[in-house]
């Protein structure tokens, strides 16, 4: 149980600003990369706004931390599941999200998309496969 690699899934359900959950969840994700576990992220409900493109926070005085998501690929975190229904309910498409990518070392470092669009039902199955699910 305590050896071997575990599957960690971080589920993001809240908008990036307004509360600190998104920022502090990202901080856990970045630390988890150092533990050589299998790490994936989920963006659902208002969490899909966390990876919206063109975020501007100057007027609100909040720190715009969205560029940090672009570094996830460099940390070998390249499974970012986005729930299809959550996007649709908010009138969003994949074009409204940042183009988050990683370089595939098994494919001559080809640049590939990290975002995987999944349905609510598929997400339930993915969660069922995890060892640790941390949501906020």
């Amino acid at each position: 149980m305590s050896d071997g690699i575990k599957k960690f899934m971080f589920v993001n359900t809240k908008a990036p600003y307004g509360t600190v959950y998104a920022l502090e969840s990202l901080e856990v994700v970045l630390i988890s990369a150092a533990f050589d576990q299998s790490v994936s992220l989920v963006f659902c409900d208002d969490g899909v706004f966390q990876i919206a493109n063109n975020q501007k926070t100057d007027d609100s005085g909040m720190k715009n931390f969205s560029p940090a998501y672009k570094a996830l690929g460099d940390y070998d975190i390249n499974k970012l599941y986005v729930e299809k229904e959550s996007l649709e309910e908010r009138g969003l498409t994949l074009d409204n999200l940042m183009a988050l990518t990683y370089e595939d070392e098994d494919d001559d470092w080809a640049e590939k998309p990290s975002i995987i669009l999944v349905t609510r039902a598929e997400l339930a199955d993915l969660m069922d496969e995890q060892d640790v699910v941390i949501s906020s």
Partner: peptide, 21 residues
Amino acid sequence: SGLGQLVEGGIQSDRLLTFGD
């Protein structure tokens, strides 16, 4: 201590339970 203690807790435990919203 650091956030690594949370991740390590997840690795070492049978279950990690979250209490919050």
